[in-house]
Design a protein around this nucleic acid. Sequence first.
DNA 1: GTCTATATTTTGATAGAC
DNA 2: GTCTATCAAAATATAGAC
Lengths: 193, 193
Amino acid sequence: MRETAEARLIESAQELLWERGYAATSPKAIQRRAGAGQGSMYHHFPGKADLALAAMRRSAGQLRESADEVLSGPGDPYQRLCAYLRCQRDVLRGCRIGRMTADPEVMASPALREPVAATFAWLQGRLAEVIAQARDAGTLAADLDPAATAATIAAVVQGGYVLARAAGSEEPFEQATAGALALLAAARPQEPE
Amino acid sequence: MRETAEARLIESAQELLWERGYAATSPKAIQRRAGAGQGSMYHHFPGKADLALAAMRRSAGQLRESADEVLSGPGDPYQRLCAYLRCQRDVLRGCRIGRMTADPEVMASPALREPVAATFAWLQGRLAEVIAQARDAGTLAADLDPAATAATIAAVVQGGYVLARAAGSEEPFEQATAGALALLAAARPQEPE
DNA sequence: GTCTATATTTTGATAGAC
DNA sequence: GTCTATCAAAATATAGAC
């Protein structure tokens, strides 16, 4: 095999954590998906928590990278904000990082929680920067608080996943983001005719 | 004891499902909290899934009742919408129903998913009604889609929980709801001076 | 580095006495 | 209705051969 067993273990853990969360993912299931035995896994990682941490850090990095691609991409700040809300997502699978907040074992472990906290702190900060730029450029109302609006946009996406998974349909997610875009459009200084 | 063992089992299951989700809640933990033995639980319920379903249905009913208290309460439709976003919540514990969407065993079981789907379908419908009333009363822009805006508001609350739990602080939730209120205010036909 | 065998604990449930 | 065994399977490792 081209990839090392260690890399395959991390990738398998990423997939299973996304699909089933931490508590419901057994070391055995990770090994099976990676095509590795017990001995291999415990040689590379002290235990399940350490492997999960490596997987979560990698997922967090990938999430951050793909979000920044849009938020630092082409277009003026307002357009990049809209692009973030509109960009393609695996809606029914939900957010690889956000779903960890519902896992009791992740929430109980400061080490496992850290990448989750750091990812959302970064996302809200980056969104707030783009919102402040849009406001300074006059494409968003001057009285909008960048930090609050950033939290709203991040929450719409995370909550959209919850509604979509509850319904078993992507529709609530599409509605939630479309509704947010309409509210943002209403908050532009010069309302379009 | 004043309460029956059956009622105490359901209440204990409600609490544990809220704290830890379904997969991570063992029958033994429910029994311990309810002060009931194995035999008692298996006498009243065929198994864990049936007890959890009773607990989820009860939580769903309570959630619906408290949401409707605000949405059908005093004030004009726009004020009731704001009241829904502002009302007191146990932010760091999150949503008893919404958190179930992250539980792999709940999502895999149509029976366990049903109350989750029904609760959010009801909430979005009820929010859309109030939004349509606000629009008809002229207190919200006529071009806002009630269903989309309802999904946005429900998503802000659900996503707010995710951000708050990730941060270990209520602040992101307060920011997300405050940001949503500011956007709604910007979508009023006559902007306030 | 990887394998197989074994150990310990927990889970979710059953059996049968009271 | 409730209790106390008891049980089979799984989770999470550890031990030691190769």
